Each structure stands twice: as structure tokens, then as C-alpha cells.
Amino acid sequence: MNLDLDLDLDVAFHVSIALADASPVALAPLLGELRGAGYRRAVLPPMNPQEADAAGLRRVFDEADIVPIAMTGQQPGADVSSEDSTERRAGADALRAAVEFAAAIGADQLNGVPYGLFGPPGGPTPFAAVERAAREVGVVADEAAARGITMTFEVLNRYETSALNTAAQALDFVVLSGSENLRIHLDTFHMAVEEADMSAAIRAALPKLGYLELGQSGRGHLGSGAVDIPAVVQTAIDDGYTGRWGVEAFSRGLVGQPAADILAIWRDPFDDGLELASEAIRVIRRGWAESTAGRRAQRLARSGAA
């Protein structure tokens, strides 16, 4: 099997895999390495739009020829799922500020958990709260689209939210939002907990799937864990997925505080983020090479060489 072909996939790398400091100075060398490894995009952690150096971030991304993906979320007192109209308005304002920040750094995608609070849930999320969140998020997603930014929402496992845990729930959320522009973000780490059939869930979400993130069961190298990442990649491509891919992993010593505690990263499954980045591309390449499109590309390459 020839794995030296150019990988014609749009892959993003979460910068928190490699470093805790997402300042322009810290990011610049990492972004250059990622571009050389074959990544087209890099995902930033959630940042305060009022405090982050948007101009500096845009400069280092432009210099590395890497496109940023921004992230957003909600906070107590600023939550689009709240019964309180003032809290909902504050939550929507936070999402709009994130859209402005994404535009300022040159991003065309905004990821995150825009539909409520992140963290161990105290019980089931009432359907009314999901409805409220969907309406607010849908409005902002349409506003973002008018700025050339695709807004996605990540489906999490049961230990991080009780609002949206499955692809089926995500599809219902898109309908509730009333937005034609809102897109789903699925992550194999979370799907390994919640989905009976990961590939079937991806297949069902395809019409609204905007971002497919690859993460292992233990949050470490993509090639080691309970999730067969190459098989996920192969099947998704064969089923017709043509969107963006993400790579996510976390090691306590690299992600830093407070993120490590927030994400429940108690161990160090790896100690070199760039090594993980290279390994992840190889793992994704294996899945692509086994897909119909990958095998066709290899046949064409062999016939051309002949």
C-alpha cells in the first residue's frame, strides 16, 4: 500500500495538544511545523475576545499559511438555554462576540459548545432548555454565515452535558434551530461512549455534518486505543463525507491549567504534541488509503508512474 501520496483531506489540529499558551509568540513555531506535517487548519482553545491579541493571531496564522478555527461556549449568567431572558441575551451576546473574534483572526469556522454550560450535569436537560438554546444558536449561526463563518456545535458525552449526546439529538437540534447554516461537530471520543454504531451515526448526520473530529478513547495517540480510527475515516469517506476533519488529544502536562481539570485530564498519555501530530496524519492516511477514493488515487498514481 502506497501511503506517500498527498492526502487530499482538510485536517485541523487542536493546538492544546501541544501547548497551553495560545499567544501569537508561542503559536508561531508550532503552526509552521503543523503546515509542514500536512495540516491546513489549527483549532484554538476558547479565548476571551476582549483580552486575546486578535491582530497578532491573524498575523502568525497568515505567515504559517494555516487557517484558524475559533471556539466558543457559555458561562453561568450567560447561557442561551436559561429560563431567564437576561441570561439568554448575555449568552447570545457572548456567541456574537465570538463570531466577531473569529472574523478578526481570519477564521471561517467557529466550534464549541454554544448551547449551554459545559461540565458534569446535575440531571437531564429539560426539552424546553434545548428549544431555547436552539433558537438562540440558530439566529447567531445565520449571522455568522453572513460573515462567511460556519458555526458548529459539538456533541458531547453524558459526563460533560446532558443536553446533546448523540448524532440523532444533534439533528433534532438543527431542526429546532430553524437555521440552514448551523452544522454538527461529531467527535469519536464522545461517540465511543454514546453511539451503538459510530459509523451509522456519522452516516445519519452527513447532511448537516460540518466537522468530524478524531480522538482516541484514552485521549492519546490516534493509533492506540479502543477506537479504530482508520476504519472510521475509511467508512466516512466511502459514505460520502467531504467535510473537514479534526485531530484532538490531551495530555495533562501539555494542556495546562485550568483546562486539564476542566477536561478531566488526569494523566499524560503522550509528551510530544508534534510527534502526535505526525502520527495522526499517518493514521488518517491509512484510513484514506483503504477508502474507495484512496484506492482509486493509488491506482492512478501507479498507472501514471508506469
Rank of each mutant, 00 (worst) to 15 (best):
Q216A: 05
E279P: 02
A129V: 02
L95W: 04
L31V: 06
A102I: 11
R132W: 07
R183K: 15
S224C: 09
T242K: 13
R88Q: 12
P230I: 12
L19E: 10
T188F: 00
D10V: 10
R132N: 05
F250R: 07
L300N: 05
Y211P: 00
L222G: 07
D142T: 11
Q75H: 14
A196S: 12
L206A: 13
A26G: 05
G73L: 06
S81T: 01
Y211L: 12
D21Y: 01
G304E: 13
P258Y: 10
P124V: 08
A97R: 14
G220S: 10
G116Y: 04
P207H: 14
R135H: 12
I202S: 04
Q50Y: 11
P124D: 12
I202T: 09
G243P: 03
G225L: 03
L209I: 12
D6E: 14
F118E: 00
G123D: 01
L274E: 07
I69K: 06
D108P: 03
L7M: 06
G178V: 06
T161Y: 08
A12E: 11
A146S: 12
D8C: 06
E100P: 00
V99I: 14
I149P: 02
T72V: 09
G148Y: 03
S291L: 06
R96Y: 03
G240K: 13
F153Y: 08
A26D: 08
H221Q: 12
V247L: 05
D272H: 05
P269W: 04
P258S: 08
A168Y: 08
I229Y: 01
S199V: 15
A146D: 14
F189V: 00
E143F: 09
Q169D: 02
I17K: 01
R252K: 11
G256T: 07
W245D: 10
M151N: 04
A55L: 14
T166D: 02
D65V: 13
G294P: 11
T235M: 06
A204K: 05
R244F: 09
E195H: 03
A277Q: 07
R88F: 07
G123C: 02
N157E: 00
G253Y: 06
G215I: 02
E33Q: 15
S177V: 08
D239S: 13
A37C: 07
V113R: 00
R135I: 13
G273C: 13
G215F: 02
S82C: 05
R183P: 06
G253S: 10
N181A: 15
M198H: 01
I66L: 13
V175N: 09
Y39I: 08
V140L: 04
D228L: 10
I66P: 05
F189T: 00
G77V: 09
L300C: 04
N181E: 14
V155A: 10
I229H: 05
S177W: 07
E180Y: 02
G256V: 07
A92N: 00
V193K: 00
L276Q: 06
A54R: 11
D21A: 03
E33G: 08
D62H: 14
Y115P: 00
A70R: 03
Y115A: 01
D4T: 15
V283P: 02
R252A: 12
A97C: 01
A90G: 03
G178A: 09
